[in-house]
Design a binder for these strands. Structure first.
Lengths: 193, 193, 193, 193
DNA sequence: GATGAATGAGAGTTCATTCAT
DNA sequence: AATGAATGAACTCTCATTCAT
């Protein structure tokens, strides 16, 4: 059984983000993470069940904070369009500021059988839920078409943002991700109307 | 080094799709593929350099045919909107009809370091190119906004379709993927206008 | 090095018998014993040098008490046949009443390199000595054949009892071990005469 | 799945006997066996499932041949006493001539959870069966007491022989094991009468 | 004396890849 | 071209033992 708290827990998690981003999930050995964290190999197993557990814990940590903070930002606006803009802005801004985490989220995380793993799908579903709520709100506010299928719309919205981030992560030349907020928002909001 | 043709080449490729889809790329052993193909383990190495090469060849095969056929269909229409609809329709239709390939494309393929691997990115860029051409055409036909950033728009379009397919692949309950063509098209076309 | 007495010493020993009997020596972790004893892992090492030391201490404890008590019972009879009967009776009775100890004695103890380990062989030799004394006595009392090789006879006697106990320990269906005293005694005593 | 035949199979088995006898089962590493056999570590796993499987295969091999040959020898005598003598003689002679196998049988084999492992118990039960048949025969021939409990008698007989061999294996000074045949037989046959 | 987090050596096992046939 | 037995590097995970508190 793995301990879910403690200082070392976080140290290992931080080392894992760095190492996964640099080396890739499958090429990363437990000893790489342990070395980066400055602990013994065995110590990793005090805090995590195995390598996959580290990656999932990582993602859960990130996503929980992500959704929480995003919800807080959304609470401050009432217009669905503003909320949509906030989602896009927050999503891009957050990942742009943490390239290592972005890489892990966009690339390494997909190295796991996602269908089986509810450790990944559950936190993600929270985010999906959030997007769908905003779309529903837009429909109620008569900003978006009534015949819009909320679930499909959510897939389009998330898919669009996700692809924009993935391209940014994979790009060999760096460019400001946040600047894509406006064109993406323009496109999506018109699509929903 | 590796022989790129021959009857067995295709037999092995077919076996690989099936096995990757069923077991997942990393959990699939060369001997599994060889067994499914009815050849000896060593024979696989006559036709492919290594395991990764199989996955990439698979994808190149699929994408080459995909882009080729799509280009043929697009050649028959002139209106950019119709072309966009054709892209979405063809994309969804093709993957819906070949669930194993869909799974490999959406899930297993992402298990490889994509940034390094131009074997994956090149065929994909052809498809991206195709989408961008259609968007450009729509701008020329004054169907789409002139200030639209073509590259960003392409990301939104591809991201949307890709996510729709991924959700379908990951879904535990089967549903008709092709039916999502209309709502996705409606959303994207309005976004572009 | 290790403290050989104290209340915790016995607590740990008791926990070890239980755990070895349940899980087997090699599959038992120090932390299992510590957990069962309600002490910290490190505490075990205050009282014992290592895992093997626990098993040996266990055996020495048991055998010392065993031989001591058996000697006391034997002191009360003079006829060698009665003494032999007492040995068999006591051996079977003792182990029958303590199944955990029986399992450790018959099975787990044999998981150690016995030839090297005088911690095991010494207490055992005391018991062997005891048996040989009784056989010698029987020869002096003209109950047993003069040409009997005492050492070989002892091996037969001990081997017979030991095997009977082992079979009982390994049996899936429980049965009364003590009832085997009479047939075993009958067989052995005739053999010695 | 492990192959049960082939030249290497036997080579590995021979190397395992030697290594187990020299180093002890638990201290023997797969690489030790592989090295002794002159094959790669991985090759061992083509022929055996794991380390335990090697030990068990070893024992099954030995016991099958043991029981088979013993049955052949017994077929040539009709008197139960002669048969009993043959059993003891064959048992001692066989193990005396193969000290490595004797050590594995008497010591290393007991390092495995015997109760769970029918790979060990089944071949052993064949031998037990054989002994019991001879005792039954002796009762029918009116050589042995009618009230003798066959099962208990078998335990005494086997336990006696087994202990004699164990003592011989553990002895620091070598001595001729076969010479113990006569005293052991004398003792057991009188016991049975 | 007691704790229990941390250690790190160690071994079993897997499987992509090779190559003699 | 085809085979498949053999290879051996690679890596995860365990757990007895230590030691700072």
């Amino acid at each position: 059984m793995a301990k879910r708290s403690g200082e070392k827990h976080q140290v290992i998690l931080d080392a894992a983000v760095k190492t996964f981003a640099r080396t890739g999930y499958h090429r990363t050995r437990i000893s790489d993470i342990a070395g980066e964290a400055g602990v013994a190999d065995g110590t990793v197993y005090i805090y995590f069940d195995n390598k996959e557990d580290i990656l999932i814990s990582l993602f859960q940590n990130l996503m929980n904070r992500f959704v929480e903070e995003l919800r807080a930002e959304l609470a401050q606006c009432h217009d669905a369009n503003v909320k949509l803009e906030t989602i896009i802005d927050y999503h891009l801004r957050t990942l742009a500021s943490k390239p290592d985490q972005a890489r892990v989220t966009q690339i390494e995380l997909r190295q796991i059988d996602q269908d089986i793993n509810e450790g990944i799908s559950k936190p993600l579903l929270c985010y999906f839920q959030l997007i769908e709520e905003v779309i529903e709100e837009g429909k109620k506010q008569a900003l978006y078409r009534q015949e819009l299928n909320t679930r499909t719309a959510r897939k389009v919205v998330f898919g669009a943002i996700d692809e924009v981030v993935t391209c940014w992560v994979m790009s060999s030349k760096p460019y400001p991700l946040a600047e894509l907020k406006k064109p993406v928002f323009d496109l999506l909001v018109r699509g929903l109307q």
